[in-house]
């Protein structure tokens, strides 16, 4: 005859979590492969302009960045809301670009020096005067391969 056991405590069986690390590692590797390391922390804010004929910047070690935009909120008090240039981790003036490029180039391997690409990451509302100044400065420093950072436009 069946016996109804009332008093016996029912315990939840322990959940087997041995595969959890594997799952998390999988996630980790996924993120590691699709994302890229941030080059610097941004002191200027910018929204990339849109374009369609984009090429990917292949070799990261050959690319140097120039950021152009308005200072972020925390720096606005100090630097104002005018368009500023950021090189590496610091605000810079236009005439410092030449020196920056030359320094960066000399730190590269000699065989790579001619392949250096400068990526201009500028806000889409930047005035062309600033961009033109940067371009002139880059020409003078013989950094002729440039890339205007942009995002893919899907439609007009």
């Amino acid at each position: 005859m069946a016996k109804i056991r009332r008093n016996e405590k029912r315990e939840m069986p322990a959940l087997n979590t041995s595969s959890l690390p594997d799952i998390i590692f999988m996630l980790l590797f996924f993120f590691m492969s699709v994302t890229s390391m941030k080059e610097v922390s941004y002191k200027v804010q910018f929204k990339n302009p849109q374009a369609t004929e984009l090429t990917k910047l292949e070799n990261k070690s050959l690319v140097r960045y120039i950021y152009v935009g308005t200072p972020t909120a925390e720096f606005r008090k100090q630097y104002g809301a005018e368009t500023r240039i950021q090189l590496n981790d610091q605000f810079a003036e236009v005439n410092e670009i030449g020196e920056y490029i030359i320094n960066e180039r000399s730190s590269m391997k000699e065989s790579d020096q001619g392949l250096m690409t400068v990526s201009i990451k500028a806000d889409k509302d930047t005035k062309m005067g600033v961009i033109a100044d940067i371009k002139q400065e880059l020409r003078r420093a013989y950094a002729l391969k440039i890339s205007y950072a942009a995002t893919q436009r899907t439609s007009y």
Binding site: K38, T55, A143, L144, K145
Partner: peptide, 15 residues
């Protein structure tokens, strides 16, 4: 890390 891929309009400046 950041998600955005580095792409842009490649141009060449005159010497």
């Amino acid at each position: 890390t950041s998600m955005d891929v580095n792409q842009g309009l490649a141009r060449r400046l005159p010497a």
